[in-house]
């Protein structure tokens, strides 16, 4: 059974006629890494947000089957509790709320949903320390307000750290590489690779504009998205081809109906 199956997905900006996704089809098997590449405005970030349940978008046609069930009618928090995790392109800052409190609330709401006992403070700290050690993250992180005053790199690392603690079935990485210098990019990619090695069941959907992230995170499948549709699918060689030749040739191919 695929972990994620997207069928003819159409979505628009809620309350408008602005259609952004115009029939997306995608199938991901468990444990796979898929990359979606495309120019700005092609709809790849929207796809991530729609999968995560953002209500600023309205699905007008098609379906999203996650882990065997349609999630279209689910709220964002229900999807998260079922195992969808979105690592944001622009993580928000929440002054006044510590990362520690925030993450504990998240973990426990998910455990409750799964019928597992909630973690107490000691168990939670143990979990956090284990993940921090694995990702090489400083402990002071936890006592700081969520993302407040963090650099771009710190915010993205915090997203990966949150993912590690929450332990989802599917990680959606929305332009995780944007705004990172090469060193920060490496650190973030290493974290994702460690998580991938550690749990072969988890799947990843990596959305990116540039090929450079894919030097560090090697995808099983690469999709190209143009104007709200996936127009080409291939293996990692496709990413290199895009890097070399740009997107125009795919666009021409797709218009020519190849």
């Amino acid at each position: 059974m695929p972990v994620l199956e997207i069928k003819n997905l159409h979505a628009k900006v809620a309350g408008t006629d602005k259609l952004i996704l115009k029939g997306v089809d995608l199938v991901m098997e468990k444990g796979q890494i898929h990359a979606i590449m495309g120019k700005n405005g092609s709809g790849k970030s929207t796809l991530c947000q729609v999968i995560a349940g953002r209500e600023t978008y309205e699905v007008t046609e098609g379906d999203i089957i996650f882990n065997g069930q349609s999630i279209l009618e689910m709220s964002p928090e229900e999807r998260a509790r079922e195992g969808v995790f979105l690592a944001f392109q622009y993580p928000v800052e929440i002054p006044g709320v510590s990362t520690s409190y925030f993450l504990k609330a998240a973990v426990n709401s998910i455990r409750k949903h799964r019928g597992e006992p909630e973690l107490d403070a000691v168990q939670f700290i143990k979990l956090v320390k284990e993940k921090q050690k694995m990702l090489g993250i400083q402990e002071s992180f936890m006592n700081r307000a969520v993302n407040e005053g963090f650099s771009g790199g710190e915010k993205k690392r915090n997203e990966v750290f949150q993912l590690a603690v929450i332990n989802p079935l599917l990680g959606l990485l929305d332009e995780t590489d944007s705004g990172l210098d090469i060193d920060a990019l490496k650190v973030v990619a290493e974290g994702i690779n460690k998580l991938h090695e550690q749990d072969a069941e988890r799947s990843w959907l990596v959305v990116t504009h540039y090929q450079r992230l894919l030097n560090y995170i090697v995808p099983d499948v690469v999709h190209v998205m143009i104007d709200g549709r996936i127009v080409k699918t291939g293996d990692k060689a496709l990413a290199l081809e895009l890097e070399e030749k740009g997107y125009d040739w795919v666009e021409r191919e797709s218009l020519a109906g190849v």
């Binding site: 209500e55 964002p76 998240a106 307000a145 929450i166």
Partner: peptide, 23 residues
């Protein structure tokens, strides 16, 4: 949306963010 995407319910998210605003 950020909080909800982490599994925190809508009401809890509102309460938490109100607290954060004042904090």
């Amino acid at each position: 949306f950020y909080l909800r995407s982490r599994g925190v319910g809508l009401e809890a998210a509102r309460h938490l963010l109100t607290y954060a605003f004042a904090a």
